[in-house]
Amino acid sequence: MKYLAFILFTVLTNAAAQLMLKQGMLSLGPLTFSSDTAIARFFQILFNPWVFAGLATFAISMVSHLYVLSKVELSFAYPFLSLAYVAVAIFAYFIFREDLNAWRIAGIGFICVGTVLIAQSGRSTPAETATIETPAAKSIHIGSPT
């Protein structure tokens, strides 16, 4: 739980990137490609301010995620990324007026419950385990075995 703030930062930057990419693509309109305009269209998409900001935010999210992965188990950190779906669904409802029906709300609920259950496991990496000396001078290893 020590790195929860970094995990949530990763989730929020990931969700923000998705929202920026969506805004960028809305501003460009439906994509059509032809062989003579494909390269120009690619650069038009890439240098759209919203798309560019979304890609930059993804890069920030990835750096944050790499930091988190250096500190906690993948099986603990990765499921938190599902919260990005929750954030995107909620913000997309308010920003883009996307549908948020009962099935999606139920799915969001399940995602949240699952994430809470995973957060309760709160397992640390072997580097964060400790050794405690008992009065009988015996060492007890606390944490996951290495």
Rank of each mutant, 00 (worst) to 15 (best):
T131G: 10
A84C: 00
R123N: 10
L83W: 03
M62V: 11
M1T: 11
G122N: 06
A56P: 08
I60M: 10
F76T: 01
L19G: 00
A59T: 12
V88K: 02
F80D: 07
A53I: 04
L74C: 09
F94E: 01
T134N: 13
T10F: 02
W50Q: 03
G107W: 05
K71Y: 01
Y3E: 04
A38L: 15
G109Y: 06
V11P: 00
F52H: 02
Q120M: 08
K22Y: 03
G143E: 11
P145A: 13
A106Y: 06
L4F: 07
K71W: 02
L26Y: 12
N14V: 01
A16R: 00
I142C: 13
T134V: 10
L31F: 13
I39L: 15
G109R: 04
F96K: 08
A56M: 13
H65K: 10
N101P: 04
A92T: 06
T131N: 13
A84V: 05
M25L: 12
S144I: 14
L28Y: 00
A77V: 02
S34F: 13
I111L: 07
T125W: 14
Y78H: 07
E133L: 15
S61Q: 08
H141F: 15
T131R: 15
F52M: 09
T57N: 08
L55M: 13
I132D: 07
S27A: 09
H141Y: 15
K71S: 07
G107S: 06
L21V: 08
I108Q: 04
G143T: 10
A130T: 12
V88A: 04
F6H: 06
G24W: 08
E128R: 13
L74K: 09
P135M: 13
H65I: 14
A38M: 15
F33N: 12
K2A: 09
W103G: 12
A17K: 02
T57Q: 03
T125Y: 14
A127N: 12
S35M: 14
S61P: 06
F76W: 09
T134F: 10
A136D: 15
I105F: 11
L8T: 02
S124A: 12
V68G: 01
I111S: 00
K71I: 00
L81H: 04
I142N: 11
L46R: 05
I95G: 03
D36C: 11
V68D: 00
V11E: 03
G143F: 04
R97V: 01
V72C: 05
A15D: 02
Y85T: 07
W103C: 12
L19Y: 03
L28R: 01
F110Q: 07
I132H: 13
T13Y: 02
L117G: 04
F91C: 11
L46F: 15
A56F: 03
S121M: 11
T129N: 15
M1Y: 01
D36A: 14
M62I: 14
N48M: 01
P79A: 10
I7P: 03
L28T: 05
S75P: 05
S82R: 06
N101Q: 10
T146I: 10
P30S: 14
S35Q: 14
A53D: 04
V63L: 12
E98K: 07
I132V: 15
I95T: 04
F6E: 03
S35T: 11
M20Y: 05
L4A: 08
I132P: 02
E128K: 12
V51H: 04
F33Q: 11
A102I: 13
A59Y: 03
G114P: 01
I111F: 00
L69C: 08
